[in-house]
Each structure stands twice: as C-alpha cells, then as structure tokens.
Amino acid sequence: MNIVAVTRFLGNLLVSVGFVVVILLAMPGFPGVSGWVWVALLLGFVLVSGIAQLVVMGLRPQEAKTANDEQVALSNKDSYLFGYWCVMVVFLVLLGFVLTDRLSATQAFFFLGLPLGIGPSIYMVFAFLRGRAG
C-alpha cells in the first residue's frame, strides 16, 4: 500500500466529508455562528489535507513518484474538469435563488466556492476506490 496515495485519499475524504457535514449539519444547526467561522473551518480541512500530503511526499519521495504516475495525473486533470462542471451547475441553481430573493449575492458567492473545493476531492475519492488514483 502506497502511503502517499493513502494520505491523499484520506485528505480528499476529509475534505469531502468535512464539507458535507459542515454545510448540511453544522451550519443549519448553529445559525448564530458567524459565516467566517465556517469558512475558517472549511479552509482548515483543505490546509490539513494539503500539509499532510506534502509532509508524506517529502518523507517518502520514491513512493510519491509512483503515487503521482500518469494515471493519477489523468485522474487529477479529470477531477478539475468535474469540479468545473460542479461549479457551473451550482452557479445556475444559486442564480435562481438570488433572482427569486431566497439568497443574497454575498451568500451565493460563498456557496459558489464550495463545489470548486469539494468537486475534485469527491472525484479523487471515487478514483482511488476504482483503482484510478494510486
């Protein structure tokens, strides 16, 4: 088992699950908490995931090389494309909410950033499980 690939999988899982838990459970459950707290928490998931991957890649350079082979590079590229289309779909939904006064433009802007972070991570989690990412 390649430790770099496993760390990347766990990091992507943390971001995917963390985002879903915060957006669907924590934010509606604690409406009085400032939006910046949630932003900080979500960015924290991304930072922890990124730093963990960098540290493990630094410690295990040979495994990092095989964990970033051409199949993983292709999966990474596809994950960005998936994230792009996630943003496109969410943009249309949010636009509808803003036009019907159900959401402010500021809130819509905040939510638009989320699929950009979560889309590629979800794609890479499934890529790993399908044997297409390390």
């Binding site: 090389k65 095989t66 082979d69 051409e70 199949q71 292709l74 044997g131 297409r132 390390g134």
Partner: peptide, 23 residues
C-alpha cells in the same frame, strides 16, 4: 513490474485490464 517502471501497482492492473491506455 510496477516498481521496475516506476508506476503504481493499480496502474499496472488497469493497463492489463484495458481500462487505462498507457502513454
């Protein structure tokens, strides 16, 4: 074989099964 060509074992597996076309 993966060690020899410096890719992951999963890449060898997907190439063998025709899922991934190598460069």
């Amino acid at each position: 074989l993966a060690d020899r060509v410096e890719v992951s074992r999963k890449t060898i597996n997907t190439v063998e099964n025709g899922v991934f076309v190598p460069s």
